[in-house]
């Protein structure tokens, strides 16, 4: 067997010794890249891949981390976010992991990153051409709630039979008067495949549409990869008389930066039930605060 080695992927002094660049071995990375290429060629379609054991448990982003490991290169700058924040356990650990096994630069600034691994959010700062965003996906199959059989679900995808997916939306409107699905809101990709956007809030769904960045999705436990290439149509499911809409926070602004157009987290601050609302995207919030001081 031939050993694949590229010169710019040589580990440098700052990396942990005894590991291949980006932790996975070259053959594994190649097999993942094949799956990714296939996924990009068929937007929204789930491609199976042989998910590897990673040094973290399922549910912590093993899918995302494998996709990141297979596309990352020496010149990349990595940003990792968890629920919008750069400083939470998951984000910090994954960032440190890649810094150790790749010796690459990391950043917290969305605009400076070339590669962003995310859990449950899309950054507020619009993504640009040339950037890649990797989503951690717990459950890739959107038809799972309707059809427990994978074989049947695959057939429904193949024949584009997505009517029953609307049954859930119908039930939402019947019970609550509006579509109550708040996260992992199903979308149609390129007018062909039904896709789960991973548990991002539906607030972020419109950002996926016609996004200039490449969007990759990795589900480690379920062993599936799918993708949305740049500038691809992504449409959230809705009814003609109940159009898709995003969450709104009436008259609420971020306590720190005063933003009214970002996704706000509600934080309970004491035992009396005092609440405040803050940006979920920490980088965006810092940026807003800074520009507020500057002006």
């Amino acid at each position: 067997m031939t050993q694949t080695k590229s010169t710019n992927n040589q580990p440098n002094a700052s990396t942990e010794s005894g590991f291949n660049f980006a932790y996975l071995d070259e053959q594994t990375k190649r097999s993942l890249r094949r799956a990714i290429l296939k996924a990009v060629a068929i937007p929204g379609h789930q491609i199976p891949f042989s998910s590897r054991e990673m040094p973290m448990s399922y549910g912590w982003g093993t899918g995302g981390i494998q996709v990141t490991a297979s596309v990352i290169g020496k010149p990349d700058t990595l940003k990792v976010i968890d629920q919008g924040a750069d400083d939470t356990t998951n984000a910090v650990n994954i960032r440190r992991f890649f810094a150790k096994v790749c010796g690459i630069n990391t950043t917290e600034k969305t605009s400076e990153a070339t590669l962003i691994q995310t859990r449950h959010r899309i950054p507020e700062t619009p993504l640009k051409e040339g950037q890649t965003i990797v989503y951690q996906v717990p459950m890739p199959e959107p038809l799972f709630v309707i059809e427990p059989s994978r074989t049947e679900a695959a057939k429904m995808h193949a024949l584009e039979e997505y009517g029953s997916m609307y049954v859930k939306l119908y039930e939402d409107i019947t019970n609550f008067g509006h579509i109550a699905t708040a996260y992992d809101y199903p979308v149609m990709v390129n007018e062909r495949y039904l896709m789960k956007p991973s548990p991002i809030p539906r607030f972020d769904n419109p950002k996926m549409n016609n996004n200039p960045a490449l969007q990759l999705f990795g589900a480690g436990r379920e062993k599936r990869i799918y993708a949305v290439p740049p500038y691809t149509k992504v449409k959230s499911l809705d009814f003609q008389d109940y159009p898709f809409n995003i969450e709104k926070w009436d008259n609420k602004a971020c306590k720190f930066c005063g933003s009214t157009d970002s996704y706000l987290d509600e934080v309970v601050t004491d035992n009396q039930g005092t609440r405040m609302w803050i940006c979920s995207d920490t980088d965006y919030c810092h940026h807003q605060q800074k520009s507020g001081i500057d002006s």
Binding site: E161, G163, S164, Y166, V167, Y170, E171, I173, T174, D238, F239, Q240, D241, Y242
Partner: peptide, 22 residues
């Protein structure tokens, strides 16, 4: 799912996307 949704499913399958009409 509710009785209404059971009937709705057949309509949704054929591409009706108007809640009120359904």
């Amino acid at each position: 799912v509710t009785a209404g949704a059971n009937i709705a499913e057949r309509l949704l399958d054929v591409g009706v996307r108007h809640y009120g009409n359904i």
